[in-house]
């Protein structure tokens, strides 16, 4: 069951201190309103769960499974023109598939499912930096890691700080932020990787993607949904940044019933979504862009 929400922004182009009132433009619109739809499918913390949980599993009997996820994704792709498939990290670790094959099968399957972009979680360091590179060769999609500096490591060049994807008429900018490795990942596993402040980086990346003309800016985050302490989480990230429309989260294995709506630094709404772990659920968000184009001379001024 889909819930339709009028949300995020009436993002209005403002110039010369003049404000356009979106509620009034309809009356003077010259061109026809144009609607574009973008479907986002996403996972997080799949943790090498290739096969479904067994039928006698105490918590998630018969749930999940990559082959079934593939079928779902195929079904959505048949129904929708523009589909974007994203993952928020912790692809590795959790079943003997990782222990035995080092993440190669996970990467092959994600490529087969047609993932567009992913970010790294703390467990994606579990095979060491070289282990990640080895498995990553089997992935045909980019990894965005914006706040990790891998300059002096074997991963250098195997991730990027952001990416832009044209989906139909929508230009989507995607970047990624990861959790601090220290205390979570053994030092030897992350080597000389440097963790940078995710808030500062997110603001930089989002502004840059906006500058490059992205209609939608998505942050793939492995920071975690929320903490009792002041540790940076997706909620904190949403509140302390601007220019981000959607945060796809992970790390805390949080099963959200629906996306959380948080206000950003300038009072705009940001969506945060997370779908638990192990590929038990896939998140689906359908964005609709309504563009009401009108001629340049027909500017409306509201005082």
């Amino acid at each position: 069951m889909m819930n339709r929400r009028n949300f995020v922004r009436n993002s209005v182009i403002v110039s010369g201190g003049v404000l356009c009132a979106p509620s009034l433009v309809g009356q003077v619109t010259l061109a026809k309103p144009k609607t574009t739809k973008l479907t986002i499918l996403h996972t997080n913390d799949t943790h090498s769960n290739i096969d479904p949980f067994p039928e006698n599993h105490s918590k998630y009997p018969g749930k999940g499974g990559v082959a079934r996820r593939f079928e779902l994704i195929q079904k959505v792709r048949k129904e929708e023109d523009s589909v974007l498939l994203l993952d928020a990290g912790d692809i590795f670790q959790g079943t003997p598939y990782f222990n035995k094959f080092g993440g190669v099968l996970e990467m092959k399957l994600m490529s087969k499912l047609g993932y567009d972009v992913a970010t790294m979680g703390n467990h994606d360091f579990d095979g060491g930096l070289e282990g990640f590179v080895k498995a990553r060769q089997f992935a045909d999609f980019p990894f965005v890691c914006s706040n990790y500096d891998f300059k002096n490591t074997p991963i250098d060049g195997h991730t990027q700080s952001s990416t832009i994807i044209q989906k139909g008429e929508v230009k989507v900018g995607v970047f990624g932020v990861g959790v601090e490795m220290k205390g979570l990942v053994p030092d030897v596993k992350y080597g000389e990787s440097v963790y940078n402040n995710p808030i500062d980086i997110a603001n930089d990346r989002a502004a840059e993607l906006k500058r490059q003309g992205c209609d939608l800016v998505i942050c793939l985050s492995h920071l975690g949904y929320e903490y009792k302490s002041d540790k940076v989480s997706d909620k904190v990230l949403a509140q302390k940044t601007k220019n981000i429309h959607l945060i796809i989260g992970g790390h805390t294995h949080t099963f959200l019933e629906k996306p959380t709506e948080e206000k950003n630094l300038i009072g705009e709404t940001v969506l945060i979504n997370q779908v638990g772990w192990a590929g038990i659920n896939v998140g689906r968000i359908d964005f609709e862009f309504d563009q009401k184009i009108f001629a340049k001379r027909d500017v409306i001024i509201v005082e």
Binding site: S11, R68, E71, P259, V275, N281, G283, D290, V299, V302
Partner: peptide, 30 residues
């Protein structure tokens, strides 16, 4: 409400963004 003429100010479009969501359970169905 004022309507300005001829390119004094540039205001080319108004975008609104709406969304629908569902968290899809992966089951035998697929």
């Amino acid at each position: 409400l004022l309507i300005c003429g001829a390119g004094l100010l540039a205001c080319s479009s108004v975008n609104t963004l709406t969304f629908e969501n569902v968290q899809i359970p992966i089951t035998k169905e697929y």
